[in-house]
């Protein structure tokens, strides 16, 4: 067989990590009859909705004291209603040893529903004094500097950086990957500016912004500098 139809440089595949939204069923009961009845009434509310829906069984809510059940029968039950159980997660050693025979993949960490997690507000770090050469300031959220940042100083923030004096040193915003973070300064003379890992050094900075009030932000993975002023 000849492979000459295939260009030699073409990549056959890419391996990528990715985040998927997937349905998780938290099991509270081990009585098959009860599960079966409740599942049937659930599906009846929206017929066809769960057709071919991949499902992960979360065992973390089961206690060891609960009665055992026929796992194969449970899986058949789900399949009969249109679900495709693809894996299970969580659960104590007691339950995991029972389900092992089904050759179903197991996720190490219990799946977090995360419904109760509210976005936490990180208060901004406010600095009054000049940031001197050799000093490094790190803020988890926003960083507000009322004075200058000297050459050789470095200021880093998970959020935005505001500098009200001249910015001579290095400023790195969005260090934890926040692509919406920005740098605002009254006098842009930085050695380096960076947003979410995209950076520009002094030599690459457009001279026309030099010494002016400007903001630095990301636009489609490109670092942009824009002046502002009153």
């Amino acid at each position: 067989m000849s492979h000459k139809d295939t260009p030699p440089t073409q990549t056959a595949f890419n391996l990528k990590g990715s985040m998927l939204t997937i349905m998780v069923l938290q099991l509270h009961e081990t009585n098959l009859a009860v599960i079966s009845e409740q599942l049937r009434s659930k599906v009846a509310q929206a017929p066809g909705l769960f057709e071919n829906t991949p499902l992960i069984l979360d065992l973390s809510h089961l206690s060891d004291g609960q009665a055992s059940l026929d796992w194969q029968a449970l899986l058949d039950l789900f399949q009969a209603q249109g679900f495709l159980p693809i894996a299970y997660s969580g659960g104590s050693l007691h339950w995991r040893s029972q389900i092992q025979d089904l050759s179903l993949p197991w996720f190490n960490s219990p799946v977090q529903a995360n419904k109760n997690a509210t976005p936490t507000h990180i208060p901004a770090k406010i600095v009054q004094q000049p940031v001197r050469s050799g000093q490094q300031l790190v803020a988890e959220g926003d960083l507000i500097i009322l004075s200058m940042v000297s050459p050789g100083a470095e200021v880093l923030a998970g959020g935005n950086i505001h500098v009200y004096g001249p910015l001579h040193g290095r400023a790195l915003a969005g260090i934890n990957g926040d692509e919406h973070a920005r740098i605002f300064c009254q006098k842009l003379e930085a050695e380096l500016v960076s947003v979410s890992g995209q950076y520009q050094i002094r030599d690459e900075l457009d001279e026309s912004w030099f010494g002016k009030a400007a903001q630095v932000y990301l636009e489609q993975d490109n670092l942009k500098i824009q002046s502002f002023g009153v």
Binding site: Q129, P130, V131, R132, S133, G134, Q135, S150, P151, G152, A153
Partner: peptide, 12 residues
Amino acid sequence: VRDSDRIIGMLA
């Protein structure tokens, strides 16, 4: 000047 800046930072 830069070295002095560093020293002023250390004084603080």
